[in-house]
Design a protein around this nucleic acid. Structure first.
Lengths: 122, 122
DNA sequence: TCCATATGTCGATTAGCGTGGACATATGGA
DNA sequence: TCCATATGTCCACGCTAATCGACATATGGA
């Protein structure tokens, strides 16, 4: 991932409404949500939301697909991996001992038992 | 990690000079660099750099320590782990199959042989 | 004490972002 | 065709960020 693309992604996520949108769309993977529904759920005017959705799209964090009159937005999970990878690889340069704890921390969160427990807590 | 803290971190990294500073300090772990040296290496006026260093510090991405007249800045690697964790845990909610590829992608980067190869490529 | 070095703070300027009203476009149904 | 719904674009306003000159503070040496 290039720095320019990373800066776009960081800037897109550095805004509370957009971060909320991103999390909302991640929760609704893999079906996604129509633009109007996103605006309604977050109580944001549709034109303001349209701008935010455009910023997230330009950053590659979400994607859109037209379905007749509605446009369905979906989170791009590859982008999440790319950003996390960008961060970690920056800190891994010649210093694997720094990153091992990170992977150790992340690994248990990816087991099915952990996910089931998290879901139960909600 | 709270959303507010994450937004501070994303905003801090969504600026080319600050991203350069962060990477520079990561390269100089664990010794760090004096503020003036950071400004000189990135060809940025010392007062402008002082502002950027303050933003990164407020975001918890770097830390400072006075050594007589100079102030040594160091990257906070725990913050890197926290941001990466924030991103991944957002996408892990009930969907471990999404995150497993990320961990798989990251794991090899944390082996000593990989780090040695990366260093050799520079 | 006086001065040089290292760094931070203040203030002004410029540029860009977030917001939302008004309008434009696209789609499907009557 | 006409209208309602869904979404995007344009524009102006207000606010915040980025920059950097000038000044302030802190430290150590002569």
């Amino acid at each position: 991932m290039e720095s320019e693309q990373a800066i776009l992604a960081f800037a897109a996520l550095a805004q509370s409404t957009r971060l909320d949108v991103f999390r909302l769309l991640i929760e609704h993977e893999p079906h996604g949500l129509p633009a109007g529904e996103v605006a309604r759920r977050l109580a944001v005017p549709h034109n303001t939301m349209s701008t935010h959705l455009a910023v997230l799209t330009r950053a590659g964090l979400i994607g859109a697909e037209r379905q007749s009159r509605t446009i369905i937005y979906r989170a791009n999970l590859d982008a999440v991996r790319a950003i996390a990878g960008f961060l970690v690889k920056d800190c891994c340069r010649g210093r694997p001992e720094v990153c091992e704890p990170l992977v150790s921390e992340l690994s248990p969160c990816c087991s099915k038992t952990f996910a089931a427990k998290e879901a139960a807590d909600d």
